[in-house]
Amino acid sequence: MTTTGRRESKAIAPKLLLLALAVAALLSPWASSHPDGLERVAEDLGFISLAEEATLFSGWMPDYLFPGLRHEGLATALAGVVGTLLAWVAVLGLGKLLTLARR
């Protein structure tokens, strides 16, 4: 491992995190609201109702909307930021745990 390599990957990680947060906060409210591939197929082939009948629980922020905010764009952006930070912490923690176990 070269010191340059270490410095580069250290420098890029915060930039990529900022990029991820920007995507979550600024782009997600503009996401297409059309059904995705599977939802579209389930509608066309007539089995989408199976999902509506079977919802086990709706989670903390169903449909990526932060609870209690009336402005939908803002609720989506906030849910996106919270989820992005959650994913970052969880994956980073997993990586640290895995390499900790190695030592």
Partner: peptide, 9 residues
């Protein structure tokens, strides 16, 4: 870690 964040977003 940051790939997890980016992919979620």
């Amino acid at each position: 870690g940051v790939l997890g964040a980016f992919i979620f977003a």
